[in-house]
């Protein structure tokens, strides 16, 4: 029963992520493993058609690399510091990246 459980159930997790990815401005939501960059979950329009599987992978790879280098930069300025939020605005898109303390980090591409 949801009332007593402290953590989310599988369904709740799915609906939570579905809600974000169904927001009008959100194109896609990808959750990566922070250490290896492997894709844990992905949803949204760029993940919708089967052919785009490679595209998601490419996106994920690029984002992962970007996060790594950002991490390096932050770590270089202060060892104790850690990355909390990345927002990247481009002419067409916006990326919201939240790196976790735990392995995965999610990403939303919007607009």
């Amino acid at each position: 029963m949801a009332a007593s459980g402290p953590s989310l159930t599988e369904d709740e997790l799915t609906s939570l992520l579905a809600r974000i990815s169904q927001k009008q401005s959100v194109q896609s939501l990808i959750i990566l493993d922070r250490s290896s960059g492997a894709i844990i979950r992905s949803s949204g329009s760029i993940a919708a058609n089967r052919n785009s599987e490679t595209l998601v992978g490419e996106y994920a790879g690029m984002v992962w690399k970007f996060v790594k280098s950002a991490e390096e930069m932050v770590g270089g300025m202060d060892d104790e510091d850690d990355l909390r939020l990345l927002r990247v605005r481009t002419k067409r898109h916006e990326l919201v990246i939240v790196p976790g303390n735990f392995n995965p980090d999610p990403m939303a591409i919007v607009r």
Binding site: S7, K23, R87, V96, F102, P106
Partner: peptide, 21 residues
């Protein structure tokens, strides 16, 4: 996806994402 840490993380980070959006 079943691990407590992961769920906790999703819980927190999804809030951050939504606020940001």
């Amino acid at each position: 996806t079943a691990s407590e840490d992961f769920l906790d993380f999703i819980e927190r980070s999804s809030k951050v994402v939504e606020r940001a959006l």
